[in-house]
Simulated scan of single mutants.
Amino acid sequence: MLLAILIPGLSMIVNGHFLKGIICFILQFTLIGWIPAAIWGVASRNQDLAEKRHRETLAALSQVRR
Rank of each mutant, 00 (worst) to 15 (best):
M1A: 13
L2I: 10
L2V: 13
L2F: 13
L2N: 07
L2C: 05
L3Y: 01
L3K: 13
L3R: 09
A4T: 02
L6H: 04
L6K: 06
L6S: 04
L6I: 15
I7L: 15
I7E: 10
I7W: 02
I7N: 05
I7P: 00
I7G: 01
P8S: 02
P8T: 02
P8G: 05
G9A: 09
G9C: 04
L10C: 06
L10K: 03
I13V: 14
I13M: 15
V14R: 11
N15E: 08
N15L: 10
N15D: 15
G16N: 01
G16H: 01
H17Q: 11
H17V: 03
H17G: 08
L19G: 07
L19M: 09
L19H: 00
K20V: 03
I23K: 08
C24S: 14
F25G: 08
F25W: 14
I26E: 00
I26P: 08
I26S: 04
I26V: 15
L27R: 02
L27H: 03
L27Y: 05
L27P: 07
Q28Y: 05
Q28K: 07
Q28W: 08
Q28A: 15
F29S: 13
L31I: 14
I32D: 03
I32G: 04
I32P: 02
W34N: 13
I35A: 05
I35Q: 00
P36F: 00
A37Q: 04
A37I: 03
A37M: 01
A37H: 03
A38V: 00
I39H: 00
W40G: 03
W40C: 10
W40I: 03
G41A: 05
G41D: 08
A43I: 05
A43Q: 07
R45E: 10
R45K: 07
R45G: 06
N46L: 14
N46E: 12
N46H: 08
N46K: 09
Q47M: 04
Q47V: 06
Q47A: 09
D48N: 09
D48V: 12
L49K: 12
L49C: 00
A50C: 01
A50L: 09
E51R: 13
E51A: 07
K52C: 06
K52H: 06
K52S: 08
K52Q: 15
K52M: 12
K52L: 14
H54A: 09
H54I: 01
H54P: 01
R55D: 13
R55N: 12
E56A: 11
E56S: 09
T57M: 11
T57V: 03
T57L: 15
L58E: 13
L58D: 10
A60L: 11
A60K: 12
A60I: 02
L61V: 08
L61S: 06
L61C: 08
L61M: 12
S62R: 13
S62Y: 01
Q63S: 10
V64W: 01
R65G: 01
R65D: 05
R65S: 11
R66D: 09
R66H: 06
